[in-house]
Design a protein around this nucleic acid. Structure first.
Length: 202
DNA sequence: TTCGTTACGGTTGAC
DNA sequence: CGGTCAACCGTAACG
């Protein structure tokens, strides 16, 4: 991994320098400001190869971001990390919440029994007691259920709900979130997808 | 020369 | 609380 960095301890983000002289953090998405710029330049009619040189971002990356923008209308990177819920699907979570709401004192094991008894799950996909406890802790303690406040047209996402918007960082120009407003972008041929309706299509 | 694709080394985060 | 592991990342290189 080698961080070509050695920047200052403290404030600066670390990064490596690519063949074009651009800074990037291996394994992490480019900052939104850059992603947005790529799309803006393309819309201005600049060729991808020129965008690549101008912003010092590999052409493969420019190609990917542009392609994704064209098919989803979003400049955002995909949702990274996490793991697919094997049993705690949105439907199940929703059911658990209802049970808990009706009887706040209910035990996790009782919920488990209800899921089976009510036919919401079968014995092969019923969540473990600890999974249920975690759901109770996370989803109920924290806040609303899978909320979606998309700043931009829906970011590409997996088919299971992954709520956080993407905590981007800014390491270029000590700017404030250069997260330029969505309206900075001319309208996309694609319809800005209405909120992410089918998040649970799986 | 341009650009689509992908191996690679890397990080993340729900389970 | 900490490990697992499949999802995504951008670069570099090939064609």
């Amino acid at each position: 991994m080698g961080n070509a960095g050695m920047g200052g301890p403290g404030t600066q983000q670390y990064g490596e320098v690519n063949q074009l002289g651009g800074v990037f953090v291996n394994g992490r998405p480019l900052p939104n400001a850059v992603r947005l710029r790529i799309v803006e330049l393309a819309q201005l009619g600049i060729r991808p190869c020129d965008i690549s040189r101008q912003l010092r971002v590999s052409h493969g990356c420019v190609s990917k971001i542009l392609a994704r923008y064209h098919e989803t209308g979003s400049i955002l990177p995909g949702a990274i990390g996490g793991s697919k819920p094997r049993v705690t699907t949105p439907k199940v979570v929703s059911y658990i919440k209802q049970l808990k709401a009706k009887d706040p004192g209910i035990f996790a094991w009782e919920i488990r029994d209800r899921l089976l008894a009510d036919g919401v799950c079968d014995k092969y996909n019923v969540p473990s007691v600890s999974s249920i406890s975690r759901i109770l802790r996370n989803k109920l303690g924290g806040g609303a259920l899978y909320p979606v406040p998309p700043l931009y047209p829906v970011p590409p996402q997996r088919c299971w709900p992954l709520h956080q918007p993407y905590d981007y960082y800014v390491y270029l120009q000590g700017r404030q979130h250069a997260a330029a407003p969505p309206h900075a972008l001319p309208h996309h041929p694609h319809q800005p997808p209405p909120s992410h309706a089918h998040a649970h299509a799986l």
